[in-house]
Simulated scan of single mutants.
Amino acid sequence: MRQFPFSVPRREFLALTGAAAVTAGCGSAAGRDGVPATTIRYQGWAGTVTPAELAEDLGYLDGLTLEWVGNTTSGPQDLQAAASGDVDFGGAFNGAVVKMAAAKAPVKAVISYYGVDAKRFNGFYVLRDSPLRHARDLVGAKVGMNTLGAHSEAMLDTYLKREGVGSGEAAKVERIALPPVNTEQALRKGRIEVAVLGDLMRDKALERGGIRPLFDDHQLLGSFSAGTYVMADRYLDRHPRVARRFVTGVGRALEWARRTPREKVVARMVRIVKRRDRSEDTGPLRYWQSYGVAGTGGRIAPRELATWARWLEQRGDIKTDRVRIEDIYTNAFNRNPSTRNPRSPQR
């Protein structure tokens, strides 16, 4: 998955999410520095077309304009930028969203933007001749992943617990933060025993051969939305109509991508990246398969946040009952139908 393209140590992850509550009141959102209300500021990802960018290109944002202010370095950093008012929305793994809520950051999740399905998932891979075959074999092994304290570590903990590995033994599984571009190489050179690979990195590694999967997050939990866009409470209070147009447009784009033949989606993404002229490589886009969002139009299901609230409580990262799930998210700004219409026209 591309939600965390660079390595962010667990301590930095917790600091970012905890600091958001402190910085939320001192950002630039109050005055917006003359930016019109119809302009939505955001951070992007190099070589990637986000659902928001696709929505704008499709004309689904109903007169709103996106203003790219740069690329983010991680999901938690993007959330912090939204909380502080440096951007108008940010997105990350739902566990990070829960962490921010526990820190009492005045933000709310408004729409899912990525997830896990049969086409888009993270796999935990070992070398073909590796002796590691079962969960208990991971005790003492090194597992490389892009960000600690986030999606991949949550999947690892869930897998170990489900397979009966106790907390004491699970703590002996060494989790190592590595940039995705280096993870496969680290596996092949024996610096780690398990590599978490997704999307482009997974498919390229599989093309080269010599590796096999232990498990993947789709096998583990099925299809589910894993990350959400959040907006600051004060933004939603001041610009509810803009938020409604934005969220509804992103939801329409998610459905367009779901029902449109993959080659047409990829072709459109390539045109978008070339047109914005940021010296980006369009090659990785040919590996795009799905945004993986489970809910129709990006609607958020409470269990998609509750799962990670329990995980964070079990880790001791947040206190029990620190968050009320119903206070973390809202579908009120999403005007997309709650069920899909398979005959809806393509744009």
Rank of each mutant, 00 (worst) to 15 (best):
T72D: 07
Q77M: 13
L79R: 07
M100C: 12
K99M: 10
L66S: 13
D86T: 12
N94A: 09
T65V: 15
P76W: 08
V97C: 09
A82Q: 01
A82D: 03
T73S: 14
D86C: 10
L66Y: 08
G91I: 05
S84V: 08
N94H: 07
D86M: 13
G90M: 01
D86A: 15
L79N: 06
K99V: 00
Q80V: 14
A96R: 00
G95W: 00
A103P: 00
T72W: 04
A103Q: 01
N71D: 15
D88R: 05
G75C: 11
K108L: 04
A81Q: 10
K104V: 07
G91T: 11
G91N: 02
G70S: 12
G75F: 06
L66T: 13
G95F: 01
V69Q: 14
D78F: 02
T65D: 12
D88K: 07
P76I: 10
L79F: 09
G90N: 07
P106V: 01
G91Y: 05
F89H: 02
N94V: 03
V97M: 03
S74M: 08
P76K: 09
F89D: 03
A102R: 00
E67L: 15
L66Q: 08
K108H: 11
P76N: 09
E67P: 09
A92Q: 07
K108G: 02
F93N: 04
A105Y: 05
F93D: 03
F89T: 00
S84D: 12
A101H: 08
G70P: 13
V107F: 08
A92K: 00
G85V: 02
V97Y: 02
V107R: 05
A83F: 05
V87H: 04
M100W: 03
A92D: 12
A92P: 01
A83S: 11
A105F: 06
M100K: 05
A82K: 00
S74R: 11
T72P: 01
P106L: 07
V107P: 00
A101G: 09
N94I: 00
A105K: 01
F89A: 08
E67V: 14
A83P: 06
G85Y: 05
K104C: 02
F93S: 01
D86R: 14
G70L: 12
A102T: 06
T72F: 10
V69F: 10
V98H: 01
T72M: 14
A96E: 05
A83D: 07
A81L: 14
A82S: 13
A82L: 08
V69W: 09
A81F: 10
P76L: 10
L79Q: 04
G75K: 04
G75I: 06
S84F: 01
A92F: 04
D78R: 12
D86P: 01
G91P: 02
S74W: 02
A96F: 01
K108F: 04
L66H: 11
